[in-house]
Design a protein around this nucleic acid. Structure first.
Length: 544
RNA sequence: GGCCCCAUCGUCUAGGUAGGCCUAGGACACCGGGUUUUCAACCCGGCAACAGGGGUUCGAAUCCCCUUGGGGCUACCA
């Protein structure tokens, strides 16, 4: 039995998005399940779009998810190089082979000329197919064109035949070669196009299973035909997975984030556009173009504006989920169940079991919508079942990346925070709840609603004063002591514990949301607690 | 426009490849109740689907056709 070889082949044009992560995951899962090889291949043949930092992003995102590779960048392997930009001579050999066999031919149209031809076809409501010449241009023709500085590309002469793709998830899908057209296999800059490089590399790297999104289904007949024309041997098995759909309709894509920002800005009123433009470091004209949907600023600008305006952007890239406080274990579990299921009733599944259960035959045909609410539920479960050490490691990484003051806590403290925040849905929940412990007493931001409801309405402030006096005379400042004091006070006053705890909570945190009050007070310490109560009393007593 | 794919609760899905085991199961969300010092977590209960129309068959969520709806592709991007 042949060893299973799968691959993930991203083009490094930006962060790894959720769709790419899912493709990588399924390929990885299959390789791990079968004890095979998983390859990471970098498809950097588009010299205009690739950036070196983007590649690093993709690599670190994969690592964060826990997806490792046996061959590829940082790993090497027998079939390298794993950067397509370094394999040009290999592709050249295969292009040559096709040219010599009369299965490919030169063309000299410029991009503009092709656009014009396409427009014309469109005007006549016809699909555009490149008109194959009766006689292929010669080597001499190509030389001459090159010498004149003309654009020279190579096209594959697609045979006019019926092509059947045998897809693992879709069964037999039939195409007509004559409708596919002669696509370009070598660009005028000498680099191969995606379909060509992909075929050559998959063959040379001995890939046995190609798992990818449905968006590639239409590329497959061409690639399959190319594979045969190149005499590369047995075809890999193809599996075209369903696509992940956004709740706003359409394929989940990076355009979602600017779109969400634009809509949010439009919905708000009284926004200082000059200020926003300044923060995004773009001109007001550029901002207006963006709002009108004419252009899109780069991601840092979009993110800066969102932060400034307090707009929550939908997470699309893997790092977005990291920054929102999700666990990689939860994300992996969740996306694995988008278009795949175990067949039994398990849903919260650790990675080892995911590998164990993985089976290509259980891939779903229909597209699935990415439901963040369910992701949150998965995250909650994974926080509960992850061990203390792993959870702490994730928390620390998260705190670092969002530059939280909570990051200054040592391991012991972090473990306690995790413990008292039991039931948290995301790491962001924990951070939000515990942040008050790490800021100065006079930096507390008072939530208006909380102040009104807890302090100003009723006798919240009076109760707070009494609590303060009682805390002040406590010799030992331990949880039980604080609990006993608050409970007996509530009993004495014939009120629920909430009546005494809530004013205290608002005083020390500024909000009604915090870890259990006894822990909160104890951790803050006597001095700071009293100081905050004092500040609160001074600030709101006069206002009433 | 052309080509291709898909169609079960609001969402993710089980069931479809071997038609009766499905008065369609689970999970998330939602609603009601409980627990409670806040938020969350937790416990109990509830709502909710085979897109429509034709066939085939003793019998169809399951097979076939049409309609409708959704999605993908249609680059010298990958």
């Amino acid at each position: 039995m042949q060893k299973v070889v799968t691959r993930f082949a991203p083009s490094p044009t930006g962060y790894l998005h959720i769709g790419g992560a899912r493709t990588a995951l399924f390929n990885w899962l299959l390789a791990r399940k079968a004890g095979g090889v998983f390859i990471l291949r970098i498809e950097d043949t588009d010299t205009k779009r690739n950036t070196p930092t983007a590649m690093q992003q993709v690599i670190s995102d994969l690592k964060w998810l826990g997806i490792d590779w046996d061959e590829g960048p940082e790993a090497d392997g027998p079939n390298g190089p794993y950067f397509q930009s370094q394999r040009k001579d290999i592709y050249d050999r295969y292009v040559r082979q096709l040219l010599d066999a009369g299965k490919a031919y030169y063309c000299f149209e410029t991009q503009q000329e092709l656009d014009a031809m396409r427009k014309q076809a469109e005007a006549q409501k016809k699909g555009f197919l490149y008109p194959r010449p009766d006689v292929f241009p010669t080597e001499a023709n190509a030389e001459k064109a090159r010498a004149e500085g003309k654009s020279v590309t190579v096209r594959f002469a697609m045979p006019d035949e019926t092509i059947v793709v045998n897809d693992v998830v879709r069964g037999e899908v039939t195409f007509n070669g004559s409708e596919l057209g002669d696509f370009i296999i070598q660009k005028s800059d000498g680099f191969p196009t995606y379909s060509f490089a992909c075929v050559v590399d998959d063959a040379l790297m001995k890939v046995t299973h190609v798992i990818r999104g449905q968006e590639h289904l239409m590329n497959t007949p061409g690639q399959q035909t190319l594979w045969k024309a190149l005499e590369l041997g047995e075809l890999p098995k193809y599996a075209h997975m369903s696509v992940t759909i956004s709740d706003s309709g359409g394929k989940l894509s990076k355009r979602e984030r600017p779109k969400a920002l634009r809509n949010a800005v439009k919905a708000k009123s009284g926004i200082d556009l000059d200020e926003v433009a300044r923060i995004a470091n773009i001109t007001v004209d550029e901002l207006n173009d963006f709002l009108r949907g004419k252009s899109t600023p780069d991601m840092p600008a979009v993110e800066a504006m969102a932060r400034h305006l307090g707009v929550e952007l939908p997470e699309i890239n893997v790092v977005d989920f990291f920054k929102s406080g999700y666990l990689p274990e939860a994300l992996v579990n969740f996306i694995a169940l988008l278009g795949w299921s175990t067949g039994d009733k398990r849903e919260i599944i650790p990675i080892e079991e995911l590998i164990e259960s993985f089976d290509l035959s259980r891939l779903t045909k229909s597209n699935s919508l990415f439901d963040r609410g369910k992701l949150v539920a998965f995250n909650t479960e994974h926080i509960k079942m992850l061990g203390q050490e792993k959870l702490r490691t994730h928390l620390r990484a998260y705190l670092g990346v969002i530059e939280s003051p909570v990051a200054s806590a040592d391991d012991e403290l972090l473990d306690r925070l995790i413990r008292i925040c039991e039931g948290a849905r995301t790491l962001a929940d924990i951070e939000r709840k515990c942040r008050f412990l790490f800021i100065a007493d006079d930096e507390i931001q008072y939530d208006e609603k909380a102040v009104k409801k807890v302090l100003l309405k009723g006798d919240g402030l009076e109760m707070l004063k009494i609590v303060a006096d009682k805390l002040a005379v406590m010799e030992q400042f331990a949880e039980e002591g604080i609990e006993n004091m608050l409970r007996s006070l509530a009993e004495e006053k014939q009120v629920g514990l909430g009546k005494v705890a809530q004013p205290l909570r608002v005083a020390i945190t500024g909000t009604t949301i915090s870890p259990p009050i006894f822990d909160s007070v104890q951790m803050l310490g006597k001095e700071n607690t009293l100081a905050r109560i004092d500040i609160t009393l001074k600030k709101f007593r006069t206002e009433n």
